[in-house]
Amino acid sequence: MSWLTSTVWKIPRAGTLLLFVGACWVAPSAAQELRVPESAMAGQAAVISTNGSGHATFYLIGPGTSIKREINLGEDVHVAPESLEDSGQYLAIVCSESCGSATFYVQPSHPASLSFLVHPSRVPDNQPDAVSGVAFPFDHFGNLVLDPLAVTFQAAGPKEKLFAREVSTRDGVAWFRTASGKSVGPLHITASIGPVSSPRVIAQVASEPCNLRIKGQRTAKGILVETEPVHDCAGNPVADGTIVTFNASGDGEKSTVDAPIKGDVARALITDSGPVTISAASGVAMTNELRVGGK
């Protein structure tokens, strides 16, 4: 510590601090002057001007870009469009004996695609606020377009046009929510901005089975039992493949068959020979009881 002489000691304290901060600072203080574009658009070339003379190293650092190039001071630096595809802040640095820097922003280009998220993929009919969609406009380079844009949402069911609505984007997002339609089948939903559109298809399906009923008769092979056409409470046929579980009980034994609905009807064969009581269930829906006598 002997190198801290009394000369330093006489400097006011604040000044001492600045002096030593300056001494410890490794970055140069004398900066080169750079003129960067006031506005730039993604995918477009830009020009950055420098002043002074002599050789220098030019750097451009931005999202997805890092360029290092030897330049002559006082000449313009041309930045190619492919180096400015990502929107965001870019940092230009010029170093000769010392370094200078400037920042500029590249704005997103025009909307070229729409990311459109629609939910759910399958929706029961007649449900309020059951369908929702969110759209994000992106430019050709994958930048989110943040300027307000009018997005048109359209939805059409198999038998009806559900809605058409125009929603303005805010911070690059537009969304909607709507009720599902009355009939089952594909629901086509489209989001569009001018010529750019994004279609989606979701399935409108029947709700839970309603008034489930069975009938049956004894045949040579056993008791052939089947449901009446299975519909939901709005009268739409329940999706084929939905399992109906048939239960037959009698004489201390029981038989069960998990049968899928095919063509609105589920069928099963019960081989019990004695008198049995048969019922069926699908989800929370239960059927009537059917009593069949023995052979």
Binding site: L117, V134, D171, G172, V173, W175, R177
Partner: peptide, 12 residues
């Protein structure tokens, strides 16, 4: 957080 989608599948 400024936007959270109705189905919770994206957040801005």
């Amino acid at each position: 957080a400024t936007f959270y989608a109705p189905e919770g599948d994206v957040m801005e």
